[in-house]
C-alpha cells in the first residue's frame, strides 16, 4: 500500500480556504433565500392559467347570457348565429358532440378494452414489447392527420358502401376519433389490469378456470373502476377533440340523429366562429365563450369523475 506520503505534508489547507470562502458567502445566502420564491412564482403560473381560463370564459359568457337568456341557450334547438334574426340554441352542438363521442366510444371502448385484455393477460413479454410502442405511435399522431384521413379516405369509402352518406358527416370523424382513442383506453385499462395481484389470478387458474374465465370473473371485476376511469377519460377526450370533426363533419348546425348528415360539435363551432369574422363585442363572439364554458365544464366533470373512480380503485389493494 502506497502510504509513502501521508496527509500532512501538503501546501493547501482546505479547511482554512473553506473558512475564508464562507466569509464572502452573502451572495449564496441571497440565492438560497430567493430561489424558493422564484420557483414558487413559476409554480403559480399553472394556477394563473386556470384562473385565466375560468376568468375569460366566465366573464365573456356573462356578456353572452345578458343578451341571450341562459335557458334559451341550453334548450334552444336552433343555431343560426349569422342570420338576420339570429338564434343561439346549444342543442345542435351538444347533439353533434354527443353523437360523435358515442360513435367514437363504440369503436374505442370494446377494441381498447380487448386490446388491454390481450396485452395484460395473453401477450408474451416479447409481443407486448413490440405492440405497446406501436400503440403509442398511434396516440402520438397529430389529430390534424386523423382529420385528413377521415375526410379524404374514410368518408369516400363509407360513401362507396353507403351512398346516402354526405360528403361531410358525423359518422366518419366519429369512427376515426374512436381509433385515435383506442391507445388511451388500452393503456389505461391495461395498467388497471396488470395491477391486479397475480395471486388472485392464480387462485382462479388453480381451480381449473381457463384464462378467459379468469379474465372475466376475476381480473376485470378487480380492475373495474380503473377500466371505467379509462372510459370516462376517453369520453372526455372525444368531447374535446376538435380537428377531426371540424374537417370531416362540416359546419351545418342540424339538430338531428342521422349520422349520415353533417353536424357541428361544440369544438368545431368555436373553430368556425373564432377563425371567421366575428368581431369582438358581438353576440356571436360572446357565444364562443358560452360554448367553450360548457365544453370546459363537461370535460372538467369527466376528468374529476375519472380521478374519483380511479382513486377508489387504488384503495382496493
Amino acid at each position: 500500500m502506497a502510504n509513502s506520503d501521508s496527509n500532512n505534508n501538503t501546501a493547501v489547507n482546505v479547511s482554512e480556504m473553506i473558512a475564508q470562502n464562507k466569509k464572502k458567502k452573502n451572495l449564496s445566502n441571497f440565492t438560497e433565500k430567493s430561489v424558493p420564491v422564484i420557483l414558487f412564482l413559476l409554480a403559480s403560473i399553472t394556477v394563473l392559467t386556470t384562473i385565466g381560463i375560468l376568468y375569460t370564459l366566465i366573464t365573456e359568457a356573462i356578456h353572452f347570457f345578458m343578451e341571450v337568456p341562459i335557458w334559451d341557450f341550453f334548450t334552444g334547438t336552433e343555431l343560426r348565429p349569422l342570420s338576420q334574426n339570429p338564434e343561439f340554441g346549444l342543442l345542435p352542438l351538444l347533439n353533434g358532440t354527443i353523437i360523435s363521442s358515442v360513435i367514437a366510444m363504440l369503436v374505442a371502448g370494446p377494441i381498447g378494452l380487448m386490446s388491454a385484455i390481450y396485452l395484460s393477460e395473453y401477450a408474451s413479454d416479447r409481443v407486448r414489447r413490440v405492440l405497446k410502442p406501436l400503440l403509442e405511435v398511434l396516440a402520438g399522431i397529430p389529430t390534424i392527420v386523423y382529420g385528413f384521413f377521415a375526410f379524404t379516405f374514410v368518408t369516400p369509402i363509407i360513401r362507396a358502401i353507403w351512398p346516402q352518406v354526405e360528403a361531410t358527416n358525423i359518422l366518419s370523424p366519429g369512427l376515426v376519433m374512436g381509433v385515435m382513442i383506442i391507445p388511451m383506453i388500452a393503456s389505461l385499462s391495461e395498467d388497471a389490469m396488470t395491477s391486479v395481484p397475480n395471486a388472485m389470478r392464480e387462485g382462479s387458474l388453480a381451480m381449473g378456470a381457463t384464462k378467459l374465465e379468469t379474465t372475466f370473473k376475476v381480473v376485470i371485476p378487480a380492475a373495474f373502476s380503473g377500466i371505467i376511469a379509462s372510459f370516462v377519460l376517453g369520453i372526455s377526450r372525444a368531447i374535446g377533440e376538435t380537428m377531426i370533426v371540424t374537417i370531416a363533419s362540416g359546419s351545418s348546425k342540424n339538430f338531428t340523429f342521422d349520422i349520415t348528415e353533417s353536424m357541428q360539435t361544440m369544438t368545431a363551432y368555436i373553430v368556425e366562429v373564432s377563425g371567421g369574422e366575428a368581431a369582438a363585442g358581438t353576440t356571436i363572439y360572446y357565444s364562443l365563450y358560452a360554448v367553450a364554458l360548457t365544453l370546459f365544464v363537461f370535460t372538467l366533470i369527466m376528468n374529476l369523475l375519472a380521478r374519483y373512480v380511479s382513486r377508489k380503485f387504488r384503495e382496493e389493494y
Partner: peptide, 19 residues
C-alpha cells in the same frame, strides 16, 4: 397545485386557444 395541473392536462386544446 397537483390537482390543478392534472385538471389542466385534461382541458381541451381549443379552450387554450380561447385563453
Amino acid at each position: 397545485i397537483a390537482t390543478n395541473i392534472s385538471n389542466l392536462a385534461g382541458v381541451p386544446s381549443i379552450v387554450y386557444g380561447l385563453l
